[in-house]
């Protein structure tokens, strides 16, 4: 999950899409990681959500401690590094 967040998938719903894990696993894990200081959450810009006619969503990004933990995990489990590809940024 840290890896997918680092690759630019910032929302719980996007992480579900990439990892194929159910919401009952993704969201509690996000809470726990936020509690442990590995990620931090923030609300997206209201104007963007307004344009798409939906309420603003909460996105998550990896903190410094999270990046360290991810590097550690990648060293220990090399397959993690190949797990998620960077998200294509829309032009």
């Amino acid at each position: 999950m840290l890896k997918t967040l680092k690759e630019g998938y910032s929302y719980g719903f996007d992480i579900m899409d990439v990892t194929g894990l159910p919401s009952g696993t993704i969201y509690p894990a996000l809470r726990r990681m936020e509690n442990d200081g590995l990620i931090e959450g923030a609300w997206e810009d209201e104007s963007k959500a307004f344009k798409e006619e939906r309420p603003p969503r909460r996105y998550y990004k990896v903190t410094h401690a999270g990046r360290v933990a991810l590097k550690d995990a990648e060293k220990r489990y090399p397959l993690v590094a190949q797990f998620a590809r960077p998200r294509a940024v829309k032009a």
């Binding site: 719903f13 159910p22 919401s23 993704i26 969201y27 509690p28 726990r32 969503r57």
Partner: peptide, 30 residues
């Protein structure tokens, strides 16, 4: 947060929102 996520999912498909809502209780417990 959940209303935002559910409405985002519902825009794609209402069934997707139902699947997303399966995690509500576990998230609330966490």
């Amino acid at each position: 947060e959940w209303i935002a996520e559910l409405s985002y999912a519902a825009r794609q498909s209402p069934m997707l929102a139902v699947a997303l809502a399966d995690g509500l209780v576990r998230d609330a417990i966490m």
